[in-house]
């Protein structure tokens, strides 16, 4: 295994990991504010990718308008989902909430399949330039660089949002203690809706990015499942954790795949490696790198 190959694995892992980070960010925002475990995060990404495709390719809208419309669509969808499905579930046990988001994921998935079919669709024209650039002596497509940079920008923007903006602080307050937040004049209902909206927008943008690189098809929701290793590694309620976790998982799955191919002659490790890491992390450090440790009292 050459150093060149290793570096290539790391960099392509970093790119795919940045998409994981974006989706994980969406997941963490919902979890942090509402304690809802969203199994439909990958579907939000998928819906974003397809809606952008519809505007961009099927209706020939320019890219910036398509992106804005996609974001708008994501917001409306999230508001509906939160109001109609998640609001009635407040106070229900974890298993019911998990199950209701699984139900939601099935609905969204088949809606997408019913509207756009299951074949691979490709964004045309490509948004980002296709040229190669050299980074550390390695040829890398410029669209990967763009994708990575945009994901990082997204992460930074939301970190700042949570740290300094009024709405962000209100969201953190609601996450910390809903009753106290409410008595301080924060509308917890609005916070819940807002967190779903932000989450859908972030995932939708992730979907647009991945759609540009790989094209879109009906198995795009698999990204949503990679959210779990990423967020568990980073800590379920940590934004920074989601960002780092996604990238680390992206790199780790590429590296383990590369190693197993070269040394063990074992292919397809990529699909399973994140979950093996997930179990290991859960065994040794269940609250992840930056997660809040829950203390239980009777």
């Amino acid at each position: 295994m050459t150093f060149q190959y290793l570096l290539q694995l790391v960099i392509s892992g970093l790119v795919i990991g940045s998409i994981y980070s974006a989706v994980a960010l969406g997941f963490v925002i919902i979890y942090k504010a509402t304690r809802v475990v969203n199994f439909a995060q990958g579907e939000l990404l998928m819906v974003g990718a397809y809606v952008c495709f519809a505007f961009l390719v099927q209706m020939h809208v320019p890219f910036w308008a398509a992106l804005l419309l996609t974001i708008l669509f994501g917001m409306v969808l999230a508001l509906f989902v939160e109001r109609l499905i998640l609001r009635p579930m407040i106070g229900e046990p974890t298993i019911s909430i998990i199950m209701v988001t699984i139900g939601l994921s099935l609905v969204l998935r088949s809606l997408v399949a019913a509207v756009w079919g299951t074949e691979i669709l490709v964004y045309e024209p490509k948004l980002f330039p296709q040229e190669m650039v050299e980074i550390a002596g390695l040829p890398i497509s410029l669209e990967f660089v763009w994708c990575f940079v945009l994901s990082v920008v997204l992460l930074v923007v939301f970190s700042v949002f949570f740290k300094y903006s009024k709405a962000g602080v209100a969201m953190r307050a609601a996450a910390f203690n809903q009753q106290v937040a409410q008595s301080m004049g924060i509308s917890v209902k609005h916070i819940f809706a807002l967190s779903w909206v932000i989450s859908a927008v972030v995932s939708g943008i992730g979907g647009v990015l991945i759609g540009n690189i790989n094209g879109i098809n009906s198995s795009l929701y698999h990204f949503g499942l990679k959210v779990f290793p990423a967020t568990i590694l980073g800590g379920l309620d940590s934004i920074l954790g989601a960002a780092l976790g996604g990238m680390i998982i992206g790199i780790l799955e590429n590296l383990s795949d590369g190693f197993c191919k070269t040394y063990l002659n074992l292919s397809g490790v990529k699909e399973v490696a994140p979950y093996i890491f997930l179990v290991i992390i859960l065994m040794i450090k269940p609250y992840g790198l930056f997660g809040t440790k829950e203390i239980e009292r009777v």
Partner: peptide, 22 residues
């Protein structure tokens, strides 16, 4: 449409059950 939506109906039933008949 209904055939491609079979899983969706399935998901919808899960959601409706959880909301109305937990």
């Amino acid at each position: 449409l209904a055939i491609s939506f079979e899983h969706g109906i399935f998901g919808l039933i899960i959601i409706l059950f959880l909301i109305f008949e937990p």
